[in-house]
């Protein structure tokens, strides 16, 4: 009874508190089992060696130390950074160009519909489509490059071209995200700013750099950070298009976690690499958060 009394000063408050607990309970139970517990478990696991069969052995920070000495881990990290540096600038720049263009024409509906569509389909489907586009010797891409006099590389089987191939495919797939977020941002800029600039005699290029870009900076930054976080989690396309090859050229961080965990059953080590990924993403999130607060006063 005493616990019940602590829930509120009077019966009305106590009843509300009980209702509150009952309402969150179904979600809270699921959340604890499927989100929170696995998160704690993965931190715990990263200090052990465990192959799912024998008794787990406590190894302290060994997994984390081992990770940085492992050449394949370093390679997957470099590959992931390469992918990120390719995909993020391209999706943001092209997303911006498309958003500005669509925002400036009347009846841009069909463009908006089409540019956003690749983002919604399953990554696996997108990767399969592009695999047939990249088909060596007889493929459509080989043919199109041939038309403009370029000899097509052996996209997916050449270690130098496999990652660019995955980047191009991913830019096509993800551009809809930056496009739609930036378009929403553009539409949020009040027309009166442009009208005032017009009266002051600013041309459209001046308007773009003096009004659009400054007011859109928080949105641009947001799409950059979200795209970076997303890029660090890249897996599906590499799994479908190249199986991480050739010569590990497209093996990414998540691919590495997947093989360590589910092919070699090094559960502890794979969890440690998972926590490395989490720390990278945490850092990116913090940067976004700090930056966002700096821009609050800019809100229009």
């Amino acid at each position: 009874m005493s616990i019940y009394n602590k829930l509120g000063r009077n019966d009305l408050e106590r009843k509300q508190a009980v209702a509150g607990y009952l309402f969150i309970l179904p979600n809270l139970i699921g959340f604890m089992i499927f989100v929170f517990l696995p998160l704690l478990a993965s931190l715990f696991l990263s200090f052990f060696n465990w192959d799912l069969i024998n008794t787990p052995v406590f190894v302290g920070f060994d997994n984390f130390i081992k990770m940085f000495k492992e050449p394949l881990f370093r390679k997957t990290l470099i590959n992931t950074v390469y992918y990120t540096l390719g995909v993020v600038p391209l999706t943001v720049v092209f997303g911006m160009i498309l958003a500005v263009l669509v925002n400036s024409v009347k009846k841009g509906f069909i463009y908006k519909f089409s540019f956003f569509m690749p983002y919604l389909i399953p990554m696996v489907g997108a990767a399969l489509i592009w695999q047939s586009i990249y088909m060596p010797n007889f493929g459509i891409l080989t043919y199109l490059l041939d038309l403009i006099g370029i000899t097509s590389p052996q996209w997916l089987s050449d270690p130098d071209w496999a990652m660019p191939a995955i980047i191009i495919m991913s830019v096509w797939k993800n551009i809809g995200f930056t496009f739609i977020v930036l378009l929403a941002g553009l539409q949020g800029i009040p027309n009166r700013y442009y009208e005032a600039a017009e009266i002051d005699g600013a041309n459209s290029i001046q308007q773009f750099f003096r009004i659009t870009v400054p007011l859109l900076t928080p949105t641009i930054f947001f799409t950059v950070v979200i795209s970076m976080i997303d890029s660090f989690k890249v897996f599906d396309q590499a799994f479908i298009l190249t199986k991480g090859g050739p010569a590990d050229a497209t093996k990414t961080l998540v691919y590495y976690i997947y093989t360590q965990g589910f092919e070699y059953f090094r559960m502890g080590y794979a969890s440690a690499v998972g926590w490395f990924l989490l720390i990278v993403i945490f850092a990116l999130t913090i940067i976004q958060f700090i930056y966002q607060r700096k821009w609050v006063s800019y809100d229009v």
């Binding site: 602590k6 829930l7 509120g8 408050e13 509300q16 508190a17 009980v18 209702a19 509150g20 607990y21 309402f23 969150i24 809270l28 959340f31 499927f34 989100v35 929170f36 517990l37 696995p38 998160l39 478990a41 993965s42 696991l45 799912l52 976080i229 660090f232 989690k233 897996f235 998540v254 976690i257 965990g261 589910f262 559960m267 794979a270 969890s271 998972g274 926590w275 990924l277 989490l278 993403i281 945490f282 999130t285």
Partner: peptide, 30 residues
Amino acid sequence: LEFPGREKIFIIYLATLMIPFQVVMIPLFI
């Protein structure tokens, strides 16, 4: 609804927003 601990529980929810699935997939499988 007002209830004791509401803010704390909500902050735990918020904190997991950025947790990538790839980090929890191994314990989840187990």
